[in-house]
Simulated scan of single mutants.
Amino acid sequence: MGGKITAVSSNGTYSFTKPNRESVRLLAGLGVEGDVHAGVTVKHRFRMERDPSVINLRQVHLIHEELFDELRDAGFAVAAGELGENVTTRGIDLLGLPTGALLRLGDEAVVEITGLRNPCAQIDGFRKGLLKQVVGRGTGTGVTHKSGVMSVVREGGVVRPGDPIAIELPDGPHQPLRIV
């Protein structure tokens, strides 16, 4: 099981989108070097207002590039970094991974999947109607969240587009992803 990185993005200021980079450096226990969401404690503005001492389970945001294909088919042009993700992947079912799955990004970096991203209403400010495309009803009664997964950095290193991704699943039983 594996895939590849198609883009890496970061931004040192709060902004909905993040510019693509040639590479980013992941820092163990912190996140993407120079990114506004890096840190031991939560850096999401809404979450900081509620309790700034909460552990940051959202250090690195990953989105599967296949989502952009699906959105394009629905009439929405979205490119890597535009939904605020740090790492864009292809060839991995990110949403199907269990909590605690490890992803080796390139030769050095390892992130641990902590949960699903819950997109906020700002996404409709970026593209009207986009929120309904990434959050909706699944085939059952539950809500589906398609806007990627969140992770923490277990081992640091430089990550680049084209780097391979290897997956290590945790011992079972596996816990499904929940919003973090």
Rank of each mutant, 00 (worst) to 15 (best):
V60L: 10
S151M: 08
A77V: 13
H145A: 08
R154V: 15
V78D: 07
P52M: 09
E33A: 13
L97R: 04
D69F: 09
N118Y: 01
G138N: 05
V54D: 01
F46A: 14
G100E: 02
F46I: 13
R47V: 12
R47L: 15
N86R: 04
T141N: 12
L116D: 05
V143F: 12
R160Y: 01
G156H: 03
V40F: 12
D35I: 06
F46P: 00
H145N: 10
V159N: 06
A166L: 14
A38P: 06
A166C: 04
S151R: 08
I167Q: 00
E155G: 00
H61Y: 15
L97F: 07
L95K: 12
G106W: 02
R117L: 10
V158H: 01
I113G: 00
A38C: 04
T139G: 06
L62T: 08
Q133V: 04
D69Q: 07
V110R: 04
H44A: 13
V152Q: 13
K146D: 03
D35F: 07
I55P: 05
I165F: 01
G162E: 07
M150T: 07
R47F: 13
Q133I: 06
L116Q: 04
I165Q: 05
D124F: 08
N56G: 10
V42E: 12
R58Q: 15
L71G: 11
H64Y: 00
R117E: 07
E82W: 02
E112A: 10
E66A: 14
F68R: 03
G100A: 07
D163S: 12
T89H: 00
K132G: 15
L169V: 13
P52L: 11
V54K: 15
R72I: 00
V32Y: 12
L105N: 09
K43Y: 01
P161I: 10
A77H: 09
N86L: 08
A166S: 14
G100H: 06
L131Q: 12
C120W: 02
G96K: 03
F68Q: 09
L130G: 01
G129C: 09
E155D: 14
A77R: 11
P52C: 10
F76G: 04
T41G: 01
R137A: 07
D124K: 02
V60A: 13
G91T: 10
G136H: 04
D51A: 10
L131C: 07
V60Y: 12
G81K: 08
I92M: 02
H145K: 12
L94P: 03
D124Q: 03
V60T: 11
S151T: 14
R50D: 05
E82D: 09
I165M: 04
C120V: 06
G156Y: 05
E168M: 10
F126L: 12
R50T: 13
V153S: 07
D93P: 03
G136L: 09
I92S: 02
A77N: 08
V152C: 09
K43W: 01
V153L: 06
G115P: 05
T139P: 08
D107W: 00
G129E: 07
V153T: 11
T99H: 14
K132W: 11
V153K: 04
Q122H: 09
F126G: 02
G100S: 05
V159L: 09
L103Q: 05
G125K: 08
R50E: 13
N118T: 11
I167K: 04
G125F: 11
S151E: 08
I167S: 00
G34L: 06
G142V: 11
E82T: 04
K128T: 14
N56Q: 11
L116T: 10
N86K: 06
T141V: 10
A121E: 12
